[in-house]
Amino acid sequence: MELKTSYLAKHVRTLQPSGIRKFFDATAGLTDVISLGVGEPDFVTPWNVREAAILSLEDGYTSYTANAGLLELRVEISNYIDNNYCVNYDPESEITVTVGASEAIDIALRAILDPGDEVLVVEPCFVSYAPLVTLAGGVPVIVESMKDNDFKVLPEQLEAAVTDRTKAIMICSPNNPTGSMLSKAEMERIADIAKKHDLLVLSDEIYAELVYDELYTSFAAIEGMQERTILVSGFSKDLAMTGWRLGFVCAPKEITEGMLKIHQYAIMCASTMAQHAGLEGLKNGRRDVAEMRKSYRQRRNYIVQSLNEMGLKCYKPEGAFYTFPNIESTGMDSETFATRLLKAERVVVVPGNAFGASGEGHVRCSYATSMAQLQEAMTRMRRFVEKL
């Protein structure tokens, strides 16, 4: 017997499925496909990190941890953030270990939003941001960053979007899907708006370790912002631990207590084995991160040059592992371009409109794949564009 549609909550019924997943479903059954669409490192989790998880099993660490996570891991997270970004968080009251950065964003929004509260969501952005605001009872207010500014949001755009219902601003830097990164000066201007209107900033810093040409500044490190910043990060991107589902969130004590309540009821705690692995990664994984970052930098330089040479204008991203080339010269919208490229040359890219309306006219190409695969993908894309 089929369930009636009316059994679903209205806000779930109207929720659109992920634009990324919808497109990838179309690749099922195809062979000889090169994917530049997956936001996942092609590296395997470093051996010492995997071994730490294995040893934790052998030693019998198979029970729950504290709801907030292993204290030893939270201490190491605190040390890591302090050493790298000069921000100090109390591991006992301001850090929660989560099931990936995705859960961290979810519980942060559910902890701070009352029904009808507005959150400024800067697009293009990861596909889950606006839906998670909606699921938390809030109202996502889209602020479109523009290609002419390398998809960096202007402070005056945020200022214009603030109302008496605005509660927070969501920022991802380096950005998925564009790879753009806010400078310290640009963050300071956004921070001024947050202070002026008494707003929180939810800062997704999952790509902070994958920055190629300058030092990274955490939003929480901006003067006067730690007390109004919810810092989200994790282990998926820099340590190639996507499948481990391990993240963390740092915030002022009151907000952390609220998030922990939700985490307790919904999750209990992150995987014990994954936490032991993450602990090893923080302690002894920096050399692996540096090697992966070096490889990504080389791939970034290659793919940006290749895309520009074939006539798809592409600026050089400062971080993450994505390029966001402009495909308007082909006369196609982003979904048509991606669909035809897949059909003709078996190369997967993600339509830019999957990340918001301002992403239209672009496609996301991930360079988190081997150089050999990138070279073949660029050969196929060049052939496709030339035929047009």
Rank of each mutant, 00 (worst) to 15 (best):
G281P: 00
P46C: 04
Q16H: 12
I255V: 14
G39S: 08
M332K: 12
W47A: 06
I20M: 11
S180Q: 08
D106E: 12
G247N: 05
T229W: 08
D32R: 00
G361V: 00
A191P: 03
E92D: 13
G116T: 03
Q275Y: 07
D114I: 02
M268R: 10
S306K: 15
L312I: 05
E156K: 11
A221C: 05
Y322V: 09
H263S: 12
E205W: 02
D82G: 09
I20L: 05
C125Y: 15
A377P: 00
H263R: 04
A168T: 01
V162K: 11
Q157M: 12
R380T: 00
E72M: 09
R340T: 07
Y302I: 09
I54G: 07
E51I: 06
E51K: 05
V127I: 13
P41I: 03
Y216A: 03
Q157A: 12
A251C: 13
S370A: 07
P351D: 15
K4W: 14
E209T: 06
I262R: 02
E40F: 09
K10C: 10
Y7A: 14
Y80D: 13
H263C: 05
M273V: 10
N308F: 00
T217Q: 11
N301Y: 06
V141M: 01
E76F: 10
L132S: 06
N326S: 10
S271Q: 14
T330M: 03
E291T: 08
T134E: 10
K184N: 07
A240S: 12
V304A: 13
D106V: 00
N84P: 02
G29Y: 01
D164W: 09
A372D: 15
G361W: 03
L55W: 07
V347L: 11
M146C: 07
T5N: 13
M310I: 10
E156Y: 07
R21S: 08
L215F: 11
K237Y: 12
V162L: 03
L239I: 12
L342E: 07
L158V: 02
Y216S: 01
L154C: 06
A160L: 05
F324C: 02
N149F: 08
L154D: 05
L246F: 12
